[in-house]
């Protein structure tokens, strides 16, 4: 997964000619990304304002209705409004984006700082761990952990966190390795500062930007992963409206009611585009500094 992420910021740099300007020029891509993410956040925070119907209200006289003005995304096999269900699902999927990345980002950053700065046995062990994570497909590893813990959202967070921090730590370790050789780090040591001050007050702020950029992209990837696990039945469990679960619900009606799966999927694509465009914007901002 980190390879996809690493590829993303590369594009942003190519399209930024205005390097000398003080204020970042408002480019359409990142603006669109920010707008999409904002929209999703509004849906996540206040779905009851945005959604036209209750996501749980059954209507047995109006089941499997194709898209119409009353139900823009159609209705499902229980007559529930799909647009409303997609909007309510945003809450779960945004939760996935945040909860699956928060611990890895924070813990991975600190761990990367420490192994990068001190090296030694811990660094050796860490590099073995990186080999392992690169060798076993991320999804397979997460699935294996979920298999032991049992399906469900919380266990999914545990599984993703248990593996995901390594990507952040690897990124941070590389940055710290480069920063600690710089003169200002040596100056700090000469001044007699303790290592916590050097690492967290001086090196960390200079090394954090790639991690921030990766965090944005990682949120998009975690939405994809979370919905994939939801689809497989290993993530969010059925009565919960989650995009992947909604798509799985619709799979049985693939031939008769395509709208049941297609619209929730569009929400995933929209979220993915939003977060990665925003990530590109953050990358461009960081580069400008």
């Amino acid at each position: 997964m980190s390879e996809v992420a690493a590829a993303a910021p590369a594009l942003a740099g190519a399209a930024t000619p205005g390097r000398t300007r003080r204020l970042p020029r408002l480019r359409p891509g990142p603006l669109l990304g920010a707008a999409i993410v904002l929209l999703l956040l509004v849906c996540a925070v206040a779905p009851d304002w945005v959604a036209p119907y209750s996501p749980l209200k059954f209507d047995y006289r109006g089941t499997l209705r194709p898209p119409s003005w009353a139900h823009p995304f159609g209705t499902d096999n229980f007559g529930r409004d799909i647009l409303s269900r997609v909007i309510w699902a945003t809450r779960i999927d945004m939760q996935i984006a945040i909860f699956s990345t928060l611990f890895p980002a924070v813990f991975g950053t600190v761990a990367g700082c420490l192994v990068g700065y001190f090296g030694g046995v811990a660094d050796l062990l860490f590099r073995r761990l990186v080999d392992l994570v690169v060798t076993v497909p991320f999804l397979v590893l997460v699935i294996a952990i979920v298999a032991v813990l049992g399906p469900g959202l919380v266990n999914m967070y545990v599984a993703v966190s248990a593996v995901g921090w390594i990507f952040y730590a690897r990124l941070m370790r590389g940055e710290i390795l480069a920063q600690k050789r710089r003169d200002y780090a040596a100056a700090g040591r000469v001044m007699g500062y303790g290592w916590p001050r050097i690492v967290f007050r001086h090196l960390l702020p200079n090394a954090i930007s790639p991690v921030l950029v990766f965090w944005m992209t990682d949120m998009a990837l975690c939405i994809l992963l979370g919905s994939s696990l939801g689809y497989l039945g290993l993530g969010a469990q059925p009565p919960t409206a989650e995009w992947g679960v909604l798509i799985a619900d619709g799979k049985n009606f693939m031939t008769t009611a395509w709208w049941m799966s297609i619209f929730p999927g569009m929400a995933i694509v929209l979220a993915g585009i939003g977060f990665s465009l925003l990530g590109d914007g953050v990358a461009a901002l960081v580069r400008r500094r």
């Binding site: 996809v4 993303a8 998009a220 994809l224 919905s227 994939s228 689809y231 497989l232 992947g244 798509i247 799979k251 693939m254 031939t255 395509w258 799966s261 297609i262 999927g265 995933i268 694509v269 929209l270 979220a271 993915g272 585009i273 990665s276």
Partner: peptide
């Protein structure tokens, strides 16, 4: 890049 594999598969299937 923003499209999950299972969704892409489902679209092709449909």
């Amino acid at each position: 890049l923003s499209m999950p594999v299972f969704y892409l598969g489902l679209i092709l299937l449909i």
